[in-house]
Each structure stands twice: as structure tokens, then as C-alpha cells.
Design a binder for these strands. Sequence first.
DNA 1: CGCCGATATTTGTATATACAATAATCTCGC
DNA 2: GCGAGATTATTGTATATACAAATATCGGCG
Lengths: 157, 157
Amino acid sequence: MTHRTRKADPTAALATQVATQCTAVRLRLINRVVTSIYDRALRPVGLTICQLGILVVLLRRGRARPGEVCDLLQMDASTLSRNIERMNAAGWVRPVPADDGRSHWLTPTAKGRRLFTRALPHWNRAQRQTVSLLGDTGVEAISAVAEGIWSGGDGDG
Amino acid sequence: MTHRTRKADPTAALATQVATQCTAVRLRLINRVVTSIYDRALRPVGLTICQLGILVVLLRRGRARPGEVCDLLQMDASTLSRNIERMNAAGWVRPVPADDGRSHWLTPTAKGRRLFTRALPHWNRAQRQTVSLLGDTGVEAISAVAEGIWSGGDGDG
DNA sequence: CGCCGATATTTGTATATACAATAATCTCGC
DNA sequence: GCGAGATTATTGTATATACAAATATCGGCG
């Protein structure tokens, strides 16, 4: 009789390599955890962290074209389009015609501004909770990586 | 006549505070960028980074119950359920009955193992590209944060 | 044995996301 | 001024995600 143990699975070891190295798997895990914190915190005001992020861009700039928002947030145009669709339906943003007929300005409404004001304390709570979870070090590291991407990516420095 | 400049928008300054501090907005941006890198790299083999992450867990452990996978990846049970649904439809994983009738084992199929082997070079390419984008520092920081969450979270150290 | 609370998963519904294809407009060269 | 190619956004389709509710099973207690 041949030996009773079946031959070792060669993929298991390779899978361990991937598991212990893969940046995407880790990043996505962190993203799920952190997104949950903010979404739960913001739920009482009926806002998601995604929507808050978009609203903040518009509030800062007063108005912005879809393409600008996409560039800033590194978000696909179609993704933004659907998000704006919901925010528009909720009455938080409005499109206004631009010179270039292919585009338009997105502007926050008064209702959107009031929502933002109401959301602030909840956002603060989530932010504190996140700092407590990731540590100052973790939060700063994430900021640094984002800055790196905004400034054209490519490596350390 | 009253002055021509309209009164400054008080939300703009607050929005800037949020924009410059919000960890979630930054993390989600990084997540979009990095996920895109892996999904594009894996596309030729018909796999997403999400699915690869799940497959890797099953390959490492040989088999796992849904709840275990959720714990490990910090993924909602319903999310895993839908992902497994697709991977099962593709023939990469199979459920096998467990002692506890409420649950079952998830196991990779031979087809799933072959897929993983084919995916490896593409994953490697994405991983290199990500290291190049985020820098060793960034990649290590993300690993550290994930380890922190796995080991019960709460702060630096 | 049978019920009841606890546990494990799936299903219903909604948001977030991206790629491919389409639609609308602009710009430049002639 | 017109047509071809570029630019900007939206629509079609599919995956990823989570909360709430439903389903199925387990385990203990009377």
C-alpha cells in the first residue's frame, strides 16, 4: 500500500506567500473596517462617507465639474455620476449650466450645507474612533500615501 | 449700497478641515487606486482581487467555514455569501457538509487551484506595481495597520 | 420530548464601484 | 461652415459591500 498521507497541496504554500504579502487584501480589509465606522456614525443624518467626501469637495470649491471631482478623488466618472444622481435626488447638490455644453457645474444646495453642518459632530466621532483604532502612526501613514498619489505617485520620498 | 462681495460661506472652511483630516476619504481613495491595479492585472484570468483573497484563505487552510473567512477578512457574512455564490458558479469552490448543520465547509476545487496558479504571475505584477506606487514605506505601513486590526486593534504600538 | 434563545447563513434591498459603450459637445483644419 | 477626432458625461451591466430580515439548526431546560 502506498503511504496514507496524500501528497501535500503545492498551492497552499504559494497561497501563504500571497496572504502574507498582498497589499490589496490588507488595504481592502482596512477599508471595510474604516468605512463601516464612518457609515455607521453618519447614518443618523442619512449620509454615507462617500457622499460626505463628495460634498466636502463641492463645499470647499463652491462648485466643481464632475471631471474635477473625479480627478481629485481618483474616482471613475461613472461612479461619480451615480453618486451625484443620489445626492441630487436628495436635494443636496444641483447641476448648473457651464460654458462648455458637454459639462456643468456641481454646486451644493442650502439643504446640502445644512446637512453638512449636522453631519460634522458625527464625522468627528468617527474620526476619533478611527484614530483610536489605527493609531496616530497608522493615520499619518495613510495620509502620507494619499499625498503621494495626489502628487503623482511613484514611490517613497 | 452694501458691499458687493457676498458673505463668506461658513461651511467652506469647515469642509477644508474635513478634507485635510478625514482618514476615510484618503483611505478610500487609496483603496480605489490599488484595487484597480489588481483587478486590471487579474482580468486576463477572470478573477478579481476580492475573489483571489477569498480563494487564498481557502487554499491556505484547505477548507474553512464562511464565518471563519468573514472573521479573517473582516467581511460581512452577506458579502461573503454573494462572493462565494459567484465563485461557486464559476466552479472554483464547493461547499461540503459539516457536522454543524447550520454551516458547511468551503473548499477550493481542482479548477480553483489551477486558476490560482495561473493568476500568480499577474498578482505578482500588480504587487510590484503597487509597491512602486506606494513605496516600501507605504506598503509596510498598511501591513502594520492590518496587523493591528487582526491583533485586536486599538491604537499604536 | 419539545420549546426557546442562541448561532450560522442566506435573502431582500440599497449604495459604491468600474469597464464598455453611447451621447453630446467642442475644436481644429480646411 | 463642416466634418473628423478629441473631450466630457451618462447609461448598460456586473461585482463588492453592508444592514435588516428571514431561515435553519443547535443546545439546554423543564
